[in-house]
Simulated assay, not measured.
Amino acid sequence: MTSSASATGSGSGSGSGCPSLLGVFAHPDDESLLAGGVLAQHAASGARTAVVTATWAGDTARAAELDAALTVLGAGEPRMLGYGDARNESSAPGRSRWCDVDLAEAVAGVVAHIRRFRPEVVVTHDALGQLTGHPDHRRTHRVALLAVEAAGIGRLHPEAGEPWRTSALYAATHPHSGTGDLGPLLSGVGKGLHSVPDEDVAAVVDVTPWLAQKWDAICAHTSQLRGERPLPALLSRLDEATRHRILATEYFTRITPGPAHVHTVRRRLTV
């Protein structure tokens, strides 16, 4: 894909072949931890990038942190659905928890963003809930799958705009072989570790050239650098070499549209 595009048009927006990319994630900081390198890579190539975040209200401190992180990654302004975090009542007072909200309502919200942004590639959580199995991660995976399909069908959610067919949907994940340093890090604070068979991984992306950007984006979520259990805080206490090993590679399964499993190793996400 080499056609140029505006913020509402189609195409990669770059002659590099990097496609336009929309992340759909559960919480502020998920975008930086799971796909910060790929987002920075695509933005650096001139491709359009953006992120939809399901939880936390727009007037909270975490929304401001998300804004700062997206600026670092070149991914535009926050696009927040504003639902409650399953594990934090103060995240969106008066709103339903994301994991409890009516499924049709949740899908319609994401469809509207897909049709407005018109991405070639959508990236979201995997079905396991990305390492820790957080219920908001699993719900986001399900909603994103349904929204990508619905966005291309004009008779579904007509109020959300003209239909748009995304070319590829990827889920951020970790293969069994890629969890070595993460295992003891997460188990040390009582967190689980969910990974997939190596052969299920469709894209293995070395994001070393964008690692400094990715880490700066993670650190922009300053509230998550405090405490014992948040992953940014755990990472901040590691030596640089170990942190580099954890963050320098991003893994993705390809879901749909397209083949369920693409048994290849690629340097970037493709359509």
Rank of each mutant, 00 (worst) to 15 (best):
D239F: 10
A202D: 13
A212P: 00
V201L: 00
I218A: 07
A203F: 10
D206T: 06
A212R: 15
W215Q: 11
G227M: 04
R226S: 15
D239T: 09
A203T: 08
D216T: 08
L235T: 10
L234S: 11
I218M: 06
L235S: 13
L234K: 12
E228V: 05
A217S: 10
W215T: 05
L225A: 04
A203H: 07
P209N: 09
V205M: 02
A203N: 06
D239M: 09
G227C: 06
A233F: 02
C219N: 01
R229W: 04
L231P: 02
W215D: 04
V201P: 00
P209S: 10
D239Y: 12
S223H: 09
Q224F: 11
L225E: 01
G227T: 04
K214F: 01
A233T: 03
Q224C: 08
P232L: 04
V204K: 07
P209T: 14
E228R: 15
V205C: 08
R237S: 14
G227A: 04
K214H: 06
A203L: 07
W215N: 01
L211G: 11
D239A: 05
S223N: 12
T222I: 03
Q224P: 01
L235G: 12
C219I: 00
D206V: 06
A203P: 04
K214T: 03
R226E: 15
W210F: 13
H221S: 08
Q224N: 07
T222Q: 14
V207G: 04
